[in-house]
Amino acid sequence: MPISEEIIVRSELRWAAISVGVVSVIMIALIYAGLVHHINPPSNIERIDPKTLHLGGEFTEANLGTRVSGDGQVTSRIVATQFTFQPRCVVLPANRRVTLRFATPDVIHGILVSGTNVNTMIVPGYVSQVHTVFTRTGDLLMPCHEYCGLGHSEMSATVRVVPPDEFKPDAEGRVACDAR
């Protein structure tokens, strides 16, 4: 029995409506995340030589971790390497603008801090920088979210967000997890 054209058109319209609906839901979710959760692509473009990262300057081992500069800016510098973060735990204050700066000497890594809008890739040759304000205190998990090799699954760090009055920099302006 041949199907009438009217039925075919109605069926097509139905499926078209479902497709438009699915795309709309995804777009609304993206717009909601962008406006309410402040999720946006990192915009910092800054180059650094991955071969000599450890030899001098900002990302030497001794300079990593959280530091408060003279003007009160809180910056945490973290290196992602196969297959660990250095340092593996950073302390940051809640309800205060903080800057996270990442670099890697080896391959592409990525991080997100669970339950926050911090999410960036870490690409050899570039410094990844994210500004944020943490509103919840506690230990937040920061896993590597870009496959970086066989040890990728064990690569994670902790962001310890403390109330502002418990955030006490030492004489050099540094705050470390084990010092607390």
């Binding site: 090799g149 066989l150 040890g151 690569m155 994670s156």
Partner: peptide
């Protein structure tokens, strides 16, 4: 390795052609 202690497998880096 041991995820409980955050330890990657030894052969993630020391394996032959591991890419570490």
């Amino acid at each position: 390795g041991d995820s409980g202690r955050g330890m990657p497998a030894c052969n993630a880096c020391h394996g032959d052609q591991s890419g570490g």
